[in-house]
Design a protein around this nucleic acid. Sequence first.
DNA 1: TGACAATACTATACGGCATACAGTATAATG
DNA 2: CATTATACTGTATGCCGTATAGTATTGTCA
Lengths: 124, 124
Amino acid sequence: MMTKAEFTEQVEKLTQELRRGIVTLAVLSQLDEPQYGYSLLKRLGDKGMEVDQGTVYPLLRRLEQNGLLQSEWDTEGSRPRRYYQISPLGREVLAKLCDEWIDITGALNVMLDIQTPSTTNEGE
Amino acid sequence: MMTKAEFTEQVEKLTQELRRGIVTLAVLSQLDEPQYGYSLLKRLGDKGMEVDQGTVYPLLRRLEQNGLLQSEWDTEGSRPRRYYQISPLGREVLAKLCDEWIDITGALNVMLDIQTPSTTNEGE
DNA sequence: TGACAATACTATACGGCATACAGTATAATG
DNA sequence: CATTATACTGTATGCCGTATAGTATTGTCA
């Protein structure tokens, strides 16, 4: 038997998996202008994507390590901040990922029978 | 330095992460009518979502273990097939996940739209 | 002024899942 | 009768998000 709590837990676990990778896409898309971890965190939250500190900071480091981001310290302000910005390579990758994203959402929305306002309703 | 091959590899890795969890959603959505692994595999492919055997079979087992699917053997046909179908619990979970999916895509599409150079030129 | 919350970052351990890889076995096709 | 497509099982691996803990500064309010 499955209790209500276990049901919720299941949903949360699957939702987490659902968000996986998508957060990366979101982050890359928001780093056209340089931002530091904390500000990015707030910005994503403002736009309706709540992300944990423990997700964002490792993610930023990973992305930089992979060459998709560039960063530098700003020690002149009130306190040291590491500003991240998308790199040229990152832009290329982002473009590819956007394409993939469109494909994926297209396929899935058909399966889920979701009416997307962006897709043209030609045919049928 | 990043070679072309490494670039592609990066994109593929991130795409994989992007698809993560989404495949689950796709599978659940396609199991209103009972299907066996192999037919599901083909069906997903037909709808534009290529998935590997090594992804689908473990996924089906996991989902059944979690109570989201029900399955039974059909040994009467030409060869034994395990037919999977979504369970009542699975339906509930699917509904929730759909809501999440809509939220996530909504937030992300806004973020990605901001990036499109053709749209807003305000602000600088 | 001194305590506490918010800011801002780093580091490590853990668990879940997709994939790779390997294996088993039957049916259809030529 | 051998090869391919079908159809499933099982294990090992790697990556990532999260939890957790830790460090240290800034701002605020009493």
